[in-house]
């Protein structure tokens, strides 16, 4: 019922905008997982912005974390004969059948941000970040910053067993492996949340001589880092100076911390997965150019030298 109403609504929206838009207009269906995190909300709003910028008509469907809703949305898009489909798959398995249906209808499908366990010929390409690289960029920054100085690092891991936690840990360890002066002395999970990040950091500070033995803190996401920064301040130390703070994601609040000198570096997980996807689709539909099977987004490093105030303002409205 809900889906039908949404489809009807988006159909009427299509009718509205097509009268005004150019002839070369594409209609693209986008099946989003939901809005479980600030990053996801930002991805949705950036996707809408990118579509508008290119004159693409975007049909948006929120799956509320359910794969069956996504499959229904995809079938709806196929029935309406959209030009292409973007999907951020909530789980990796169970996509084969609906992807085959799209292929039979000759509608290219682009996966955003996460992969699927299905034959590669069933989708055009996938746009995602390289999580191992994100960890590596963070580690390389730390190795470069501390130089030959001894550095005891504490690590706030993501949820135990989750792919980003495993990969971001791996990348960071790879990057500092050659620097014998840098060692990870404590590592615990903060479940990617602010409150757990703070609690875990409080424990680390006590266990490491009130924090005096800690040289740097690496967090698998910015939210945990923001919590940890508060814990460091409560312990009477200066985050960013006494303890270096490096994390991943580049959410607005870490730029706010950078403005105050309390965070040193963050690696961006860009919410703009749709931009490269639209570019690949455009080239494919216009000239039949086959894109690379895996498009990897840039993992850009931000430090206080990169205009944190501007970055904060730029990201604030995206729904993070």
């Amino acid at each position: 019922m809900n889906i039908v109403r949404k489809l009807a609504l988006s159909a009427s929206m299509v009718a509205l905008c097509c009268t005004a838009a150019s002839a070369a207009n594409l209609t693209v269906g986008f099946s989003q997982i939901g809005s479980e995190s600030g990053w996801r909300a930002a991805e949705t709003s950036v996707t809408k912005q990118e579509a508008e910028k290119r004159g693409v008509t975007l049909k948006f469907a929120d799956a509320q974390q359910k794969q069956e809703n996504q499959i229904k949305a995809l079938r709806g898009f196929i029935a309406q004969g959209v030009d292409a489909i973007l999907v951020a798959p909530v789980v990796a398995t169970g996509w084969e059948e609906v992807l085959k249906e799209a292929k039979e209808a000759k509608i290219p499908v682009v996966l955003l941000d996460r992969g699927v366990d299905a034959p590669q010929d069933l989708y055009l390409t996938s746009v995602a970040s390289d999580q191992v690289k994100e960890g590596r960029v963070a580690g390389e920054w730390l190795a470069k910053t501390v130089g030959s100085k001894d550095c005891r690092v504490v690590e706030l891991q993501g949820t135990v067993g989750s792919t980003p936690a495993i990969n971001r840990k791996k990348g960071f360890e790879e990057a500092i492996a050659s620097s014998k002066n840098i060692s990870i002395v404590r590592s615990q999970t903060g479940d990617f949340t602010r409150s757990k990040g703070k609690e875990v950091m409080e424990g680390f500070l006590k266990a490491e001589n009130g924090g005096k033995n800690i040289c740097a803190m690496y967090a698998h996401n910015d939210d945990m880092a923001v919590g940890a920064i508060q814990a460091i301040k409560d312990a009477g130390l200066k985050p960013g100076t006494d303890i270096l703070v490096v994390s991943i994601d580049a959410v607005p609040d870490i730029f706010a911390a950078m403005m105050k000198g309390e965070a040193n570096a963050t690696v961006e997980l860009t919410p703009n997965m749709a931009g490269p996807a639209f570019d690949a689709l455009d080239a494919y539909l216009k000239s039949g150019k086959q894109p690379a099977k895996f498009i990897i987004t840039e993992s850009k490093l931000y430090t206080p030298a990169d205009d944190p105030k501007g970055e904060y303002e730029r990201r604030k409205g995206l729904g993070y």
Partner: peptide
């Protein structure tokens, strides 16, 4: 945590 985190 000086913020409301509805998800967590």
């Amino acid at each position: 945590i000086r913020g409301a985190d509805a998800n967590n």
